[in-house]
């Protein structure tokens, strides 16, 4: 995406909302979807449009886990660390991801392909432990399965349909 395209996309997202502060979160979410993070220009543009301080949007963007100020990977790997998943060894999954990708939860691989996140209960406790890659659930996951799953995303084959 060129800078110009990015600017246009930002203006589109912002213009879709009435100039009222209660739309701040929705617009930030749209940016997160469009760019995999919230670019600084986007935050500035949105503050102008809504007539609110940048600081207020920055506060929101750093508060919600679903929003990020640094680019996230193409594949976002969420490991559930809710009670059920934790008891069923979610931390072992995190360790295995670390040896596979070399990153801790909260980080993104250098090639920009993967981000790993620890999240709270995903509402599928019966299927614990759960790992979600973009929108695909991997349930009752065993540590041995992790490398294979990651490989399939690396090859781009198992996209998230």
């Amino acid at each position: 995406m060129t800078d110009q395209e990015k600017g246009e996309r930002i203006r589109e997202i912002v213009a879709a909302y009435p100039a009222d502060q209660r739309h701040a979160l929705a617009a930030l979410q749209d940016m997160q979807h469009a760019f995999n993070f919230i670019p600084e220009e986007g935050l500035v543009e949105l503050a102008k449009h809504l007539g609110c301080p940048q600081a207020q949007l920055y506060s929101m963007a750093t508060f919600y886990k679903a929003l990020s100020l640094t680019p996230k990977g193409e594949y976002i790997v969420k490991i559930c660390n809710g009670t059920a998943c934790h008891l069923r060894g979610s931390m072992n999954l995190a360790t295995s991801l670390k040896s596979e990708l070399g990153i801790d939860p909260g980080q993104t691989t250098e090639d920009g392909l993967f981000s790993v996140e620890l999240v709270n209960c995903l509402g599928s406790c019966a299927l614990a432990p759960v790992m979600v890659v973009n929108d695909t659930y991997h349930n009752r996951l065993r540590v041995e399965q992790v490398p294979g799953i990651i490989d399939s995303y690396r090859q781009g084959g198992a996209s998230d349909e």
Binding site: P53, Q54, A55, Y58, S59, T62, F63
Partner: peptide, 15 residues
Amino acid sequence: ACNALGTGAISTVNR
């Protein structure tokens, strides 16, 4: 205080 003044330059960051 900053918001009351109308400047709104600072906020809480992270959680």
